[in-house]
Design a protein around this nucleic acid. Structure first.
Length: 540
RNA sequence: GCCCCCUUCGUCUAUCGGCUAGGACACCGGGUUCUCAUCCCGGAAAGAGGGGUUCGAUUCCCCUAGGGGGUGCCA
């Protein structure tokens, strides 16, 4: 089982999504943790597409799955397994279980075949005794005992019968009593005839049952020691009456043939695990080590559902997130390195990631924090990389489709460090288009002030002659400020609003130079004529 | 109903019996800067509640509450 030549177990993990619809953020987080674990341990990360549900599985979903994984750089080892192609092997396994008596056929319904059910074995390594159990039973509902399990009714608080059932193995030493405390039934220590399906019992007027409770135990790397009483576990349908293998069978068989050593999956599978470990054993395999990841919940603290449209991996790409930033952020959901580091490279993460440090409480996404982290990542992207994404984003605007390459590059270089999300580049419009929408607050605050029009006019006239580069432009502006006896820098914001239509942006002198003399002069003219308060037509 | 699991600032988290409970995002103040962002400094903000165990509990145990998962011939 995946042993290297040194006798050290080689880790083999898998990501096993079912390709029905888009890849969910919770799914991809499971993929990320599997990948990190595999890379940390120098093991292998496999992909298994669980496409047995032919009705709902689509090629498109498979495609978006591969896209999402490629985008997040989750490289896989070995061949991709398609579960639908393993149907014969799954059915063969079911046949073996049935032949050995580990599984049994359910009574077939009219017109259908017989479903196959895996019986929780009578004895197993993972069972441990927990002592005697005494249950109160509702006398109106008869107790039935068969190789398929025990059915009975408990008594609700209101005295109503509540139907319950469990596997036969859960009721070792079962004894049933009536109201007079007579023992009506005794399963005995060795219920061979019942197990063999040679005897079934229906017992009436039972008020009390006793048995030796046992529980199933497995060790979870994240949640610790997990236990569940066997009498609360039911036998498991592994083949439908239609003849199709059920998820549980397929999943366990494939994990066995792929020699998976660790199963890292969502919390929602813990209940399955109690039965899967027994299925592994019945199939002649040692169960893998399990690690159940906590769920990711939405901003309302509720589990993500189809309604939370923003939970698909593809949407994060579309909304301008960087894959490395998302990767890093997701890594911090339910896991932390143990110190104060948060921004961690892939290499760092691979070297320090352990499943033992995963928390077991659900965590919710914080888009603000993700955006912040995205800004950190965008700021340090190589210019070319940033430009490529920015160009794609710009092309979503009609003014951004055909831009001057040289100008585009310079704008990117200037504004990259102030971009948090790619859609933010929409504010760059003033560099590429002359159709400006002036920020009304900016206009009011900076242009419609006394004296501004004169200073802008002076600036406009003398700008025509000056060398159009940063230092010269800055000196000229300062000159005008001195002449008008205002503080150095005071004129910057009025100029900014006049030439960029917004009060926020990068350094003004650089911005002006990038805009170019012609545009700056035209816009100053426009502002002087249309946006500033003119003295002669000042308010009543 | 029953079973399994979870519970530290609004959010993500640190803490593995000694805590003036640390960090990050968001928020609020101040500084730097021509604006914004960055950056720097500061502030407000948490152990669900109740019982134990202990010299000492956020840390261990129990109960309650709240939340999640499961209870399919779905995966």
């Amino acid at each position: 089982m995946g042993r290297s030549e040194f006798g050290v177990m080689t880790v083999r993990v898998r990501f096993a999504p079912s390709p029905t619809g888009h890849v969910h953020i919770g799914n991809i987080r499971a993929a990320i943790f599997n990948w990190l674990f595999a890379r940390h341990r120098g093991g292998e990360f496999l992909l298994r597409v669980e496409d047995t549900d032919l009705e709902r599985s689509t090629d498109e979903a498979k495609e978006t799955l591969r896209e999402a994984m490629a985008w997040l750089k989750l490289d896989i080892d070995g061949e991709v397994m398609h579960q639908s192609q393993r149907r014969t092997a799954h059915l063969a396994a079911a046949g073996e279980l049935e032949a050995s008596g580990a599984a049994y056929a359910l009574p077939s319904e009219a017109g259908k075949g017989a479903a196959v059910c895996f019986r929780m074995p009578w004895m197993a390594d993972v069972y441990e005794p927990v002592g005697p159990a005494h249950l109160t039973v509702h006398p109106d509902v008869p107790v039935t005992i068969s190789h398929a399990g025990v059915q009975y009714a408990m008594v609700s608080k209101k005295g109503k019968p509540v139907e319950e059932s469990g596997c036969l193995a859960g009721f070792k030493g079962l004894r049933l009593f009536d109201a007079d405390d007579h023992c009506l039934y005794d399963l005995g220590a060795q219920p061979d005839t019942v197990l063999a399906g040679k005897a079934e019992f229906t017992v009436e007027h039972v008020v009390r049952m006793e048995f030796e409770r046992r529980q199933v135990v497995f060790e979870d790397l994240i949640k610790g020691r997990m236990t569940k009483p066997l009498d609360g576990i039911k036998d498991l349908v592994i083949v439908r009456s239609s003849g199709a293998p059920v998820f549980h069978l397929a999943n366990v068989c494939d994990d066995a043939v792929q020699e998976i050593t660790h199963i890292v999956r969502g919390d929602d599978h813990v209940e399955n695990t109690f039965r899967h470990v027994l299925l592994f054993a019945a199939l002649g395999h040692t169960p893998p080590v399990y690690a159940h990841l906590p769920m990711i919940v939405n901003a309302q603290g509720k589990p993500y559902s189809k309604r939370d449209g923003d939970a698909y991996v593809g949407d994060f790409k579309a909304r301008g997130f960087d894959p490395d930033a998302l990767f890093n952020y997701l890594t911090l959901l339910g896991w932390a390195p143990g110190d104060d580091r948060e921004k961690l490279s892939r290499e760092d993460l691979v070297s320090i990631f352990t499943l033992e440090r995963v928390r077991s409480a659900p965590s919710q996404m914080d888009l603000k924090k993700l955006a912040h982290m995205n800004g950190l990542y965008l700021a340090e992207l190589p210019l070319e990389t940033f430009m490529a994404s920015a160009r794609t984003e710009l092309a979503k605007h009609d003014w951004g489709r055909e831009v001057d390459e040289k100008l585009f590059r310079e704008v990117c270089a200037l504004l990259q460090s102030r971009t948090q999300l790619y859609p933010d580049v929409a504010v760059w419009k003033y560099f590429f288009s002359d159709e400006l929408e002036y920020d009304p607050k900016g206009v009011r605050k900076f242009l419609q002030k006394e004296g501004v029009v004169q200073m802008l006019t002076a600036l406009r006239q003398r700008l025509a002659d000056v060398d159009f580069e940063e230092n010269a432009v800055e000196s000229l502006i300062h000159e005008i400020e001195r002449e008008n006896e205002i503080k150095e820098g005071k004129l910057n914001q009025p100029i900014r609003v006049a030439v960029t239509a917004t009060p926020i942006g990068a350094g003004l002198y650089e911005t002006m130079v990038l805009l170019g003399r012609e545009r700056v002069l035209t816009r100053l003219d426009y502002a002087i004529a249309n946006l500033c308060d003119r003295e002669e037509q000042s308010s009543p």
